[in-house]
Every structure is written in structure tokens, then in C-alpha cells.
Amino acid sequence: MNSNDLSSTVLVVDDTPENLSLMSDLLREHYRVKVATNGERALRIAGAAEAPDLIMLDVMMPEMDGYEVCRRLKADENTKNIPVIFLTARTDPEDEKIGLELGAVDYITKPISPPLVQARVRNHLLLKSHADFLRDKAEWLESEVQSRTRDIQRIKDVTINAMASLAETRDNETGNHIRRTQNYVKALAQHLSRHDKYASFLDRETIDLLYQSAPLHDIGKVGIPDRILLKPGRHTPEEFEIMKTHATLGAEAIMVAEKVLDETETSFLRYAREIAQNHHEKWDGSGYPAGLKGEEIPLSGRLMAVADVYDALISKRIYKPAFSHDKAVSMIREGRGTHFDPDIVDAFLEIEVRFSEIAREFADEEDT
């Protein structure tokens, strides 16, 4: 916007016709001029679709004085950025202070000096044009950031879902296992997030990442030979040792993906790596692959341990029948402090009904 041509509109607000005529004559050569004789009309004009670029506002008007008009302009999202210059016969510095504190950009006393008025109007229109440009640029940048953020989130979702689908195709017994377990993990994390001990860690973003990452807990099974993975019966001790390597294989596969992204500690896959590596660790240190104990086990792995075991207990396998929900709850309770983190077992016991609901919602077809 050129600050000194007819593309700029100045609204002059004054209850005295002579003052309106004087200001109109002074500004008309360079700007489009609108006039209002009271505060209510000024607010209507300012809030119209084609808002003025600057408002020259008399302070002393009946019914609604200039201060109140300015206060309402600045309180309205649609008019708050219109610069206001007060025109007044008052010369008390306190009056000027009030006007500026209300959000006015300038304060001109009467009788006016035409060159001074012209200069200040020109300068404030120029400042407004720059401010509008910067504001539009900031809004555009914010829009771009939001768009890029959405793109990154979609990439994350596609990456995790693709890897989870790969893992699922290798184990035809699990059915909806990955969907159930990710919802168990989310329910546990949300419940624990209300406890002071976990609130700072389990924020919404972390819980979302845990939910998205949980389906990758068994991705390492892609590296287990079919003769072991798909064996229709219990494994021999030697076969079980090979089967146990899926935890490390999964973590290593995810780490390769992280290195491609040139990230490790800040990678969105870090919880997936932790879950794959640690969901078979036990609280008392008797788990695998590293024999971690207590809080040495990342929280993500401890959450997944409860979710995974509960689902294995209630699910039918070639080597075992499906246990009832109550039986599974009892067995999880028995594992408190040995197999499982006591805090997580306590949380599980408080929301075990929710686990039952999730199990029914995502039941395998043969169970429905």
C-alpha cells in the first residue's frame, strides 16, 4: 500500500461539522476520506468489510467519547490493528497518557497544524503497511509450518503402519493382537499420566507416540525362520532361544531406520525401538534379552509387557486355550513386583474393565 495515494482510507470522527469539513479538505487530496459524527457510527464503519486504514478520533464527543470508541476498537479482533490518532483540544499530559495506553498511535492537539497532521497521517499509514505485510508474512509462515507438521506426521504414521503391517504378515496367529495391545498401552499410559510420578513424562504427544509405536513390538519376528515362528506347537529349548532373538532383531531393525533419518535419541521411532527391545524384560531381572531389572527397563517396555502378556493370556493359541478375563487379571496380579512393574499392575487393576472392552472391540473373528 502506498501511504500517500487514494488507495488509503482515513476515517475522521468528530461531532462538530466544521472540524469534519476541515479535516476532510486537508486529507481528501491524498486519501479517500470517510466521516462519522458519533462513536456508534464510527464503530460500524470501522467494522465494515472495507475497513479504514487509519482513524482520526475526537476525544470529546457526547454519548460515547473517543476513549470509549478506541477501547472498543482495540477489543475487537477485526478492528484492533487499525491505527488511531486522537484529535483533542485537551493539552493535559495525563489525557495523552490515557489515549496512548488505550492503544492509540498518536495524539494531536487542536488547533491543528496542517503540515503536522499530513506528516503524521502519512507516517502512520506507512507504518501500518509495513505491519500488515509482516503480519501477513507471519500468518503465511505459520500456515506453512502447520502444513509441514501435518506432512511430517503423515510420514510418521505411514512409516510405522508399513513396518507394523510387515510384522503382522509374519505371524498369522495374532489376528488383531497389535490393535488390541496398542490400545491397552494407550489406556495404561493415560491412566498413569494422572499420577504425579508419571505426569511430566506421559504428556499427550508421548502417549500418542507410544500408541503408534506399540504395533512394532514384534517386528523382529520377520527375522525368525518360518520353521520356528510358524511351528504348530511348543518350541524346544533351542528353538525358544532363537525365538527370543526377535526382541533384539526388532530393535536393531528400527535403529537402522533411525540412522537413515540421522536421528536416534530424538527419533519418533525411539519408543518403538524401546518397546521392541524391552517388552520381554521382567521387573525382577529374569527377562530377556538383557536381563534388565526394575526401572532399568524403559517405561515403554514395562507398559508393553503388561499389554502383551494380558493379550496372550486371553487369546487362543495352538499350544493353549484362551483364558478368561478374570483368570488373566489374576495372573497379572500374581506377577506384580516379579514379572511386572508394580505401578503398572496397579494401574491395570484399576482399569481392567477397559482392557476387557478393548478385547471385545478388537476380537479375532474366531472369537466373535
Results as ranks from 00 to 15, higher is better:
Glu263Trp: 12
Ala251Gln: 14
Asp151Lys: 12
Arg234Ala: 11
His217Asp: 08
Gln182Lys: 15
Glu296Phe: 01
Ile254His: 06
Ser129Thr: 09
Pro215Trp: 01
Met23Ile: 10
Pro225Phe: 00
Arg227Asp: 15
Ile224Cys: 03
Leu20His: 09
Tyr107Arg: 07
Arg302Ile: 00
Lys293Ser: 08
Ile224Asn: 05
Leu230Asp: 12
Asp15Asn: 11
Val222Ala: 05
Asp262His: 15
Leu6Tyr: 06
Lys97Val: 13
Glu263Ala: 09
Glu101Ala: 10
Gln190Asp: 06
Ala104Ile: 08
Thr88Leu: 06
Asp58Thr: 04
Leu349Gln: 10
Val306Gln: 00
Met243Trp: 13
Asp76Ile: 05
Ser129Cys: 05
Arg32His: 14
Asn78Phe: 10
Ala322Asn: 06
Ser213His: 03
Val185Lys: 08
Ala312Ser: 14
Asn19Lys: 00
Ser7Trp: 03
Glu50His: 11
Lys327Met: 10
Asp14Gln: 03
Met255Gln: 13
Glu63Gly: 04
Cys70Pro: 05
Ala272Phe: 06
Leu229Trp: 01
Glu296Ala: 06
Ser324Met: 06
Arg122Asn: 09
Tyr67Arg: 01
Gly103Gln: 03
Gly103Tyr: 04
Val185Leu: 13
Asp95His: 09
Pro215Leu: 07
Glu361Phe: 03
Ala167Pro: 13
Leu209Tyr: 03
Glu357His: 15
Ile224Pro: 02
Val353Ile: 12
Ala189Gly: 01
Ile358Leu: 04
Leu127Gln: 11
Asp157Pro: 04
Ala49Cys: 11
Ile108Gln: 07
Asp14Arg: 06
Ile155Ser: 05
Phe201Arg: 13
Arg148Thr: 09
Lys244Glu: 13
Pro111Lys: 07
Glu68Arg: 11
Asp5Cys: 05
Val69Pro: 06
Tyr310Trp: 03
Ile254Asn: 07
Thr181Met: 14
Ile351Cys: 10
Asp346Gly: 05
Glu352Leu: 03
Trp140Ser: 14
Leu20Ala: 07
Leu125Cys: 01
Arg120Ala: 01
Glu63Ile: 15
Met64Asp: 05
Ala49Lys: 14
Ile155Gly: 04
Glu357Gln: 15
Ala189Ser: 13
Met243His: 15
Tyr211Trp: 12
Ser129Leu: 02
Pro114Ala: 06
Thr236Arg: 08
Arg120Cys: 01
Thr245Arg: 15
Glu18Ala: 15
Arg71Gln: 07
Leu166Trp: 08
Glu139Asp: 14
Pro215Asp: 05
Met163Asn: 07
Pro115Thr: 02
Ile351Pro: 13
Gln190Thr: 13
Asp65Ile: 05
Leu100Ala: 00
Asn172His: 14
Lys34Met: 11
